[in-house]
């Protein structure tokens, strides 16, 4: 977390405060971008941080910094991953729960087979702990779409295991 007065100072053009905001946000942005953009994760995180800092002056409420940055990081990670277009879509099978112990595996291979949009909803739901309504708002899609993507994403984990 970061103190609100530092965010306000950064918004006013104090570049040392901007540096402190950067220190606070970088690990968080990396945590969001990594599972969505995979091998393009560093590019995605860098581009997300650029977008965040260029838009920082427009943030109305400093207390909302991390939620605001999360939405930008997800958007940039999906965009960069789509640009890479190295993923293969997953297929539907059944649905493990978020706390299913079977999900506690090395997820790299399974994530690679999902689309960036599916990885994004999985990150928001299972890594960030958001409900489907909030995840849908971040992704700017209807709640039903977010739910469907989550279903597909979890299904691919189940499939990867049972194969």
């Amino acid at each position: 977390m970061i103190e609100e007065h530092l965010v306000r100072a950064a918004q006013r053009g104090d570049t040392v405060a901007m540096n402190e905001v950067l220190d606070a946000l970088t690990p968080y942005v990396g945590r969001i971008c990594g599972p969505i953009a995979l091998h393009d994760g560093a590019d995605a995180a860098q581009e997300a941080l650029i977008a965040i800092f260029r838009g920082l002056h427009s943030l109305q409420e400093p207390a909302a910094l991390f939620g605001w940055a999360r939405a930008i990081a997800v958007r940039e990670a999906v965009r960069v991953a789509r640009r890479g277009q190295r993923q293969l879509p997953a297929e539907l099978t059944d649905l493990p729960a978020a706390d299913d112990p079977q999900l506690a595996i090395d997820v790299q291979d399974v994530l690679r087979r999902l689309s960036p949009e599916h990885r994004a909803v999985l990150v928001l739901r299972d890594l960030e702990g958001m409900d489907e309504q909030a995840a849908a708002a971040v992704l700017d899609v209807p709640e039903g779409t977010a739910k469907s993507r989550l279903h597909r994403a979890r299904a691919s984990f189940r499939k990867a295991w049972s194969s």
């Binding site: 945590r31 965040i52 800092f53 260029r54």
Partner: peptide, 22 residues
């Protein structure tokens, strides 16, 4: 869940900070 992590280099972080300074 073993989520992939990203660690940016200082140069990558630097580009982001400088981008916000006209």
């Amino acid at each position: 869940m073993n989520w992939p992590q990203v660690e940016l280099t200082d140069v990558e972080r630097f580009r982001a900070l400088a981008a916000a300074v006209p």
